[in-house]
Amino acid sequence: MPSLKSHRRKQIMSSRKGNRHGSLWLVYSPKSNEDLTITSDRELLYWMSELEINHNVRQFKFDAEVAVCLDENDPDTFEVVSFTLVECVDGTTELHMIDARENLDTDLKCLSVRFRSENNVIRKAKIVRVPLARLKLFSPQIGFWLRILAFASQVRDYKLDVETDLVNLVVSTDGEGTIRSLLSTIHIQDPALAVGAICRLILSGAILVEAGGDSFGYNTSWRSL
């Protein structure tokens, strides 16, 4: 009988979609509260910048097979295409595709379409093309955000309601500061829980941080909304 470790390795390798030479990332997503297998560096940049830390995104699903109407002259014909299915906080739906050909323009390209939902209801959506140039522009920040995600991952099994309330109280009172000053002000006995609560609030958008070239740490500046 294969071990759990070898079974997990097989599951991960099967998600490479034929590319056995590219990077493979196993990451934790606080937004979906699950582990994700990211099959390339490009997809990692996309997931982080356009999904995980995008406060307009409520939930997402990779490799969703979606029936969309792409021909305005034939509104009854739907074609199944693979997208990242994105549900936004305002209730709208976006269908994301990475445009690997675009290396200059960093703006998102949107196209309004109709698609057939899982319950066969026809709904409106936007196909969003994410240029490769946009992902490259974000790439210097990836280490900063991966460190924040690592801290959030360490407390994934904790509710942290009390710790979050304590952090929110200081944030609303002080308005801005550094992570060091924030930690020194809040009264949380376990530093790991304190940092975990702070990172959750950063990822949710309740605390704004400056993602500079340096890694996330004590000297990182923050401010309230």
Rank of each mutant, 00 (worst) to 15 (best):
S3M: 05
W25K: 02
S112G: 00
R114C: 08
K159G: 03
V195H: 02
D107G: 05
A67N: 07
R180Q: 14
E94M: 09
K124E: 10
H55R: 06
R9E: 15
I53K: 13
V121W: 00
N73D: 11
E43S: 05
V167Y: 03
Q189A: 13
P191Y: 04
T106R: 08
E87R: 12
G205Y: 08
R101A: 07
T185I: 06
L85D: 10
I148H: 03
H7V: 13
F62R: 10
R8Y: 11
A125E: 07
L36M: 07
P2L: 12
M13N: 14
T178V: 05
N54H: 13
R42D: 01
Y46A: 07
P140A: 11
L166I: 12
P140M: 14
R101Y: 05
I122G: 02
D35Q: 06
E210L: 11
V81H: 02
S184K: 08
A194W: 04
C199E: 00
I198W: 01
L85K: 14
I12L: 12
D35M: 12
M97H: 12
S14K: 04
D99E: 10
C199Q: 06
L85W: 14
C88R: 15
G175L: 15
V128F: 06
L70Q: 04
V209S: 09
L44C: 03
V66A: 09
H7G: 01
D99G: 03
S153T: 05
D74G: 01
S49Q: 14
A150Q: 10
D157C: 08
S215V: 13
S15V: 00
R101N: 05
S32Y: 00
R134C: 03
S29G: 08
L183M: 13
S15M: 09
R223E: 02
S117D: 15
G18L: 12
K10V: 11
L137P: 00
V121K: 09
T93E: 03
V80L: 01
C69E: 04
K109E: 05
W145S: 02
W145G: 02
P75G: 02
K17L: 13
L111M: 10
I142R: 05
T185A: 10
N103G: 14
V171H: 03
H21T: 12
W222F: 03
S3C: 04
D165N: 12
W145I: 02
H96Y: 06
I202H: 03
S6L: 11
S184M: 06
S181D: 08
R156H: 02
L85H: 14
F138I: 03
S40C: 07
D214C: 09
W222I: 01
K17F: 06
D161P: 00
F62E: 09
